[in-house]
Design a protein around this nucleic acid. Sequence first.
DNA 1: TATGATACCAAACACGATGTTCGGTTTGAT
DNA 2: ATCAAACCGAACATCGTGTTTGGTATCATA
Lengths: 183, 183
Amino acid sequence: MDRRQRKTRKAIFDAFTDLLKKKSYARITVQDIIDGADVGRTTFYAHFETKDDLLTSLCADIFEHVFSEDLGKEKTHDFSVEHDTGAMITHILYHLQEHMEYLPGILSGQSGEIFMTSFKEHLKDLFSHSCRSPGVPVPQDYMMNHMVCDFAETVRWWSQNPGYTPEEISSFFLRTTPLFESP
Amino acid sequence: MDRRQRKTRKAIFDAFTDLLKKKSYARITVQDIIDGADVGRTTFYAHFETKDDLLTSLCADIFEHVFSEDLGKEKTHDFSVEHDTGAMITHILYHLQEHMEYLPGILSGQSGEIFMTSFKEHLKDLFSHSCRSPGVPVPQDYMMNHMVCDFAETVRWWSQNPGYTPEEISSFFLRTTPLFESP
DNA sequence: TATGATACCAAACACGATGTTCGGTTTGAT
DNA sequence: ATCAAACCGAACATCGTGTTTGGTATCATA
């Protein structure tokens, strides 16, 4: 990877996220992006196969950040408590908060699905050991889907109702989805 | 409204739902629809402003059926118990079942949002008197959104995991979302 | 049976967005 | 100085949308 390549790639990402703060994904054209990034059309398609590919890459970047592996040893946030599920939730919300400006632009239509599909995959991994069997005949897969969707929809709600702290949102989630085991 | 008009409209709806059983909404073109309905392009646009308009109309038809007002006095289904929330849920699921074949084709991408937005509006009306305050500081709006999304996602899950009865699905939902008041 | 309104049809069109191809230019390492 | 890479913009083919045009079928009424 060249230095120029990285620079161009960053310019495209920046223009893209900038646009997402104003318009929804569906209303953004490739022309908008290359105008904003001041980049040739050919160059854009040299970096990304399609507009969806760009979005997928952006989501990958976001999730790499949000689900970074320093969950327990985190110092920047105000929990030095044990690494329990609640703290994990709060941690993720803190990281997500940094992307809140342009999240509403993604979380609708086809783009919302691209984001959510990947998001839910990550959440499944995360929840796989926190999901307790309800002791009643409910399929495990339903259970997992239920928790994952609850959290994803909580994030969507947050993006439409900003002004709450990650701790508050975490509290809302845990109180309405009391499905976790304490470790 | 002419008799011819109704016939044409029905032909378009039928072709549309037929296509939805095979392809997702996003992959269906207007050309596909008018070919399937054996109808001229001009005629299609005389009936519906856009493809989205057709979908919106279809959703309206579905919900008119699903949320029909005979909730309490229903005899065809096997609950003659009191008109409580559980029975209401089961009733809705019974009606939704009749549209299950083509629901997966709708419940993704932009079309999923069109469906879900309208669906959630109906559910809000329905749940507005069944939603109990959790006795803890969780915003009422969050609460309502939580319940509505839970049910909507349950339906989505059902559409991807067919083979369960409405009673089973209702039970899954009520056990994982214990937020209702008994009347 | 003649007439006129209304629905219908096919074909062609303008438009907007996508993704590709072309020849030429800049950058930066050797 | 050279050479490969990344870049540029302009033109292009393609596809789907929604509109326009001019003509045909249906059906009620006179």
